[in-house]
Amino acid sequence: MSSIKHLVYAIIQFLREQSHMDTYSSDEQESLEVAVQCLETVFQIRIEDRHLATAEPLEELFTNNFCKNDKLPLSLSSLPDNAEKAIQLKDEGNNHMKEENYSAAVDCYNQAVQLDPNNAVYYCNRAAAYSKLGKYIEAIRDCETAISIEPSYSKAYGRMGLALTAMNKYEQAITSYQKALDLEPENDSYKSNLKMAQQKLRDISSPTETGCGFDMASLINNPAFVSMAASLMQNPQVQQLMSGMMSSAVGGPAAGVGGLTDLSSLIQAGQQFAQQMQQQNPELIEQLRNHVRSRSFSSSTEEHS
């Protein structure tokens, strides 16, 4: 293994020198740097390990190591046990993702990270599994870790954008997608997700939204509001009130027997309905009242020609 480390150290030094040459494009230079990081991680070699340096030219070192044996000494069996096991766990996690068994995938990626904590892929894959489980904060944290290990990892920026979008943090999501596209300009998925996040940001900033920042669309999609509404509609008293309100609205003062036959009765029914909602969720009703007040204030201050 000592001779292999000498060879790998020489290869790393060669690749590092090549990555700084102007003859390569920026993308090619980044690829060489990533290759260096992978070799350093797998073989646990650092730039400070100067004792591994040799005066023997790389070509001769390579020939002497490979021509003495029929098989390649850098086969998977020569990798450190931890790195090899981590790769197997990553593959198992990927299979669980295909089967939509996201919790099992997280378990596999967890073990891979423990065995090889400097591999950005394992964090990024775990971020995808976390997002599928709705654990967006954990997903973002894993993407950030992956980026800290490999700053040019476009997939980590893309997956962070997905998690941020799911949390309605559209401005931050747009930044992530733009960074992903900077690194991978032809990726159609990043382009599509960026446009979607930009549209979402425009929607919440459109004139149809209220000036006080109250999001009616979010209210309608709020599980607490939906649950409260469903509970109210199961209440016989509320059902009677709603029936009366509809009868009065459709039939007017001449509505059938048992219905609401005048405007004052309709107002009274509306007040009773509001009281029922107040008992169910007083905080939500206060938000609605503030919303109505803000709309009234906005209308009263409009300039008319």
Rank of each mutant, 00 (worst) to 15 (best):
N64G: 07
V113C: 13
A129I: 00
Q271K: 08
Y170K: 02
Q239S: 09
S189L: 09
D262T: 08
I47E: 15
L288Y: 05
Q13N: 14
K179M: 13
K155G: 00
I149K: 07
R295Y: 06
Q237N: 13
N65C: 11
Q276D: 06
M167W: 01
M228E: 11
E84R: 10
K200Q: 13
L32C: 09
Y102P: 05
N187D: 15
L15E: 15
G213M: 03
F297T: 15
G93H: 01
I47H: 15
K200C: 09
D142W: 04
M216V: 13
A224T: 11
D49G: 00
C38S: 14
R126A: 08
N222F: 03
T41N: 15
L15K: 14
E28P: 09
R50T: 14
S78W: 05
G161P: 02
Q18E: 15
Y170V: 00
V106F: 02
L164I: 02
L284I: 09
P236H: 05
E144V: 02
E286W: 03
S152F: 03
G213P: 10
E28I: 05
E303S: 10
T41E: 15
M1T: 11
N119P: 12
I285R: 11
A55P: 08
Q234T: 11
V257G: 07
Y177W: 01
M167D: 01
A173V: 00
G244H: 02
E209F: 02
N125W: 01
G244P: 02
S227K: 14
N221D: 15
F14V: 09
R46T: 14
Q111C: 02
V42H: 07
E28W: 06
E184V: 03
L133G: 07
V226S: 12
V34A: 10
I87G: 04
I140A: 00
L61E: 14
E40N: 12
D81M: 03
N222G: 07
Q198S: 08
N82L: 05
L72R: 08
H96P: 06
I140P: 00
K90Y: 03
A156G: 05
M167A: 00
K179N: 12
M216N: 08
K85L: 10
F62L: 15
N125A: 04
T261W: 05
S243A: 09
K71W: 04
S243M: 09
N221F: 05
L61M: 12
V121C: 04
M196F: 04
G134E: 10
C67A: 07
M1R: 12
M1I: 08
A255E: 15
L58H: 10
A173F: 03
L72I: 09
E33V: 06
A156P: 01
P223N: 06
A254H: 12
V121E: 13
I140T: 02
S2G: 07
S206W: 02
R295V: 06
A127E: 03
M216D: 10
M167F: 01
S248N: 14
T175H: 08
Q237P: 06
A83P: 06
T41Y: 08
E184H: 05
L61N: 10
Q178W: 01
S231H: 08
Q276T: 05
A156M: 04
A129Q: 02
Q37K: 13
E144P: 03
S26R: 09
